[in-house]
């Protein structure tokens, strides 16, 4: 009797979950597995767009492809600068929003607006702000007397990268702040009071209580931000188009133009596979760190 109830429960469970798994298989599993398979073929204009088996040729080619390494370099610069700045700024904003201030609800609401807006449109907003002729950044710098001639932000390789990073930091800092704020609110106020009775300064309290207890949220926020920045597409594509001269071409832009512009499907698939593997590697490392943090927190309790 108990057995049949359990069996029926299992059957109901699988029926309930099957549609979701099917959709995920179609949109996630199939495309990724398909990319692995396609990456073993050469399929481009040279082969008349017919797939021809070529083993690991695509990967060998990637190894010698300067544009690929450049895109990896650009992606790394973009990702690491952006997430470090977002972590610092996001922490600051979370600490402010955690205080009891008048109109806190409204300030929080305002603070999450950037996160909710479409990245493609934000890219246009920031391209306009950094515009070389009429942009507000140049205007302010000129008024302050810091420069004599307007800077061509998006036309200079280094400055274009800086501009893209600034736009990304503006857009996603609020996401980091939201996650950290939730962590801050779960830390008991008593801990701080006891600590300050012991004579600790606010900075010491921050280092000795807030940071260690917030570590899980910090790692999770970093992980999600890493994954999203590593695959960034819309912001860069709209704001700089990967330019000038490929200076802001990130991996996903290279994947996109390999496939859509050069019709090099096999090579594009190999690029997808490498991006996927890097991502999985970082996720595995982060998962390890999180589980370490959990067990060490468990030991302390």
């Amino acid at each position: 009797m108990a057995d049949t109830i359990r069996a029926r429960e299992q059957r109901t469970g699988w029926i309930l979950i099957a549609p979701a798994l099917l959709v995920l298989a179609l949109v996630y599993a199939y495309p990724i597995l398909r990319s692995f398979w396609l990456s073993l073929f050469t399929q481009n204009l040279g082969t008349g767009l017919e797939p021809v088996f070529s083993g690991l040729d695509n990967y060998a080619r990637m190894f010698q492809d300067g544009r690929f390494w450049q895109s990896i370099f650009n992606t790394s610069v973009f990702t690491f600068s952006a997430i470090i700045l977002e972590l610092i700024l996001g922490m600051g904003i979370a600490l402010v929003l955690d205080q009891s201030i008048r109109g806190r609800g409204l300030v929080r609401t305002i603070a999450i607006i950037p996160w909710a807006l479409p990245t493609a449109l934000i890219a246009l907003t920031w391209a306009w702000i950094f515009n070389d002729q009429f942009g507000v950044v140049n205007d302010l710098l000129l008024r302050l007397g810091l420069i004599d001639v307007g800077i061509n932000w998006l036309g200079n390789p280094t400055l274009a990268m800086v501009s893209a990073i600034v736009a990304d930091v503006w857009k996603t800092t609020s996401f980091v702040a939201i996650l950290l704020l939730a962590g801050l609110q779960s830390i008991s106020q008593d801990l701080y009071e006891a600590h300050s009775i012991d004579g600790a300064t606010p900075w010491q309290s921050f280092r000795q209580i807030t940071l260690p207890l917030l570590m899980p949220q910090i790692v999770i926020a970093l992980l999600f931000r890493f994954a999203q920045s590593f695959g960034i597409f819309d912001l860069i594509q709209v704001m700089t188009g990967g330019g000038p001269g490929g200076a802001t071409e990130v991996v996903s832009l290279y994947v996109y133009s390999s496939i859509m512009r050069y019709l090099d499907f096999g090579y594009g698939a190999a690029l997808v596979v490498v991006t996927f593997l890097v991502l999985i590697l970082v996720v595995a490392i982060a998962a390890l760190v999180i589980s370490r943090l959990r067990t060490s927190a468990g030991e302390k309790l």
Binding site: L21, L24, V251, S252, V272, T275
Partner: peptide, 30 residues
């Protein structure tokens, strides 16, 4: 409902939230 393999399914779902759309784009295009 205590499904067999629910931890694996949950783990996969968690990982999938991290995937940038560029990974899916070629397969979906096909």
């Amino acid at each position: 409902l205590r499904l067999k393999g629910e931890r694996i399914i949950l783990g996969l779902i968690l990982i999938v939230t991290l995937f940038p759309y560029i990974l899916l784009f070629l397969g979906l295009l096909e």
